[in-house]
Computed example of a mutant assay.
Amino acid sequence: MERKRILITGAAGFLGSHLCDRFIKEDFHVIAMDNLITGDLQNIEHLFKLENFEFYHHDVSKFVYVPGNLDYILHFASPASPIDYLKIPIQTLKVGSLGIHNLLGLARSKNARLLIASTSEVYGDPTVNPQPEEYWGNVNPVGPRGVYDEAKRFQEAMTMAYHTFHGLETRIVRIFNTYGPRMRLNDGRVLPAFIGQALRGEDLTVFGDGSQTRSFCYVDDLIEGIYRLLFSDYAQPVNIGNPDEITMLDFAEEIIKLTGTTQKIICKELPTDDPKQRRPDITKARELLNWQPKVDRAEGLKITYDYFKSLPKEALVNKEHKNFKTYNK
């Protein structure tokens, strides 16, 4: 029986590379695509020797061509951390607008099902907690985070337009804070930021008074949820995340205990439009996908910390990604 073929954009990134692993494991032919603006080929280099894996170095904001038949597309190409999208705002907007338009056109021409990676950031700084899919959000479109939030909101709208107008098979996953091996230590997200500071012997930085909350989902759980959603019959957005909520102050204390650092916690000014609460309502995922997270935070954090400790020392240095200046156009 011929293998199903799947295109994964953003394939050299944190989540994209784990998705490549999962679909290789499920015996798909995986076509990986990434412009390497924030991705790293080291995340997928172990797959290059496989005959059912191929890689395209390409920016999906430009015309996308893939020869042969295509059964599924996963659109995970996008800067996803505040440090990234604040330094490359135009590229962030382009991948969420031109990129999704190109991929929807490709999906239509190939009669492929397309799943897009949306985000809990579509809810902005929420006025309800936890956040159900029916909540429309509280987003500042012209604030510093608007380049990411609105790119994802537009991406959802464009995807649903193709679904309703053209009858295209589409799926939308709203991803909440996720962590695990292959995260970049210096990408600005809270967990690698804390662990990076601990490994460098720096004080851990909490913004505001540390009372704002996040909910962390281990990457293997997230990938399982995405896999189930792709093969479901549900086209509306679905939250995938771990509803176990924790304040940033308590989380910093957990990281100090995990890493054994003697550094203290310091507070800095809260960034503009930083969400005060983030917790998914996963009722739909439970009912529609029979999914819920299985890995508890203590277990997931230990695996993630062991991964970061194994990195070469130069990975601990805070430095700008080599491609940022090239792409900030």
Score class of each variant (00 low, 15 high):
97 S>C: 07
115 L>M: 15
126 P>Y: 03
313 K>A: 12
203 D>A: 03
149 D>G: 07
37 I>E: 10
121 E>R: 03
128 V>C: 11
110 K>C: 07
313 K>E: 14
133 E>N: 02
141 P>H: 00
91 Q>G: 12
206 V>Y: 05
252 A>Q: 04
87 K>H: 15
54 E>G: 11
41 L>N: 05
154 F>L: 15
42 Q>T: 07
125 D>V: 00
276 K>F: 09
154 F>I: 15
104 L>A: 06
172 I>M: 13
127 T>D: 14
188 G>W: 02
280 P>M: 08
15 L>P: 02
180 G>V: 01
86 L>N: 09
189 R>M: 09
158 M>N: 10
62 K>T: 12
178 T>E: 13
214 R>I: 03
321 H>E: 14
172 I>R: 08
318 N>K: 09
266 I>V: 15
259 T>G: 05
313 K>N: 13
254 E>V: 01
308 F>P: 12
26 E>R: 06
48 F>C: 11
111 N>H: 15
28 F>C: 00
117 A>M: 04
165 F>I: 10
188 G>M: 01
20 C>S: 09
328 N>Y: 06
230 L>H: 04
250 D>G: 13
117 A>C: 03
158 M>I: 08
16 G>K: 07
41 L>T: 05
261 T>V: 01
165 F>S: 14
253 E>I: 08
74 L>T: 05
207 F>E: 12
196 G>F: 05
179 Y>V: 04
188 G>S: 09
113 R>D: 13
297 R>Y: 11
95 V>C: 01
13 G>H: 00
6 I>G: 05
197 Q>N: 07
282 I>L: 06
87 K>D: 15
199 L>G: 08
218 Y>V: 00
28 F>N: 00
30 V>L: 00
165 F>K: 14
9 T>F: 10
209 D>V: 02
302 K>H: 06
222 L>R: 00
147 V>Y: 12
267 C>I: 10
189 R>T: 13
280 P>V: 09
96 G>F: 06
45 E>S: 03
268 K>H: 10
242 N>G: 06
232 S>V: 10
317 V>P: 01
94 K>R: 12
325 K>M: 11
102 N>R: 02
169 E>M: 04
247 T>E: 03
46 H>R: 15
262 T>K: 12
182 R>Y: 14
244 D>A: 11
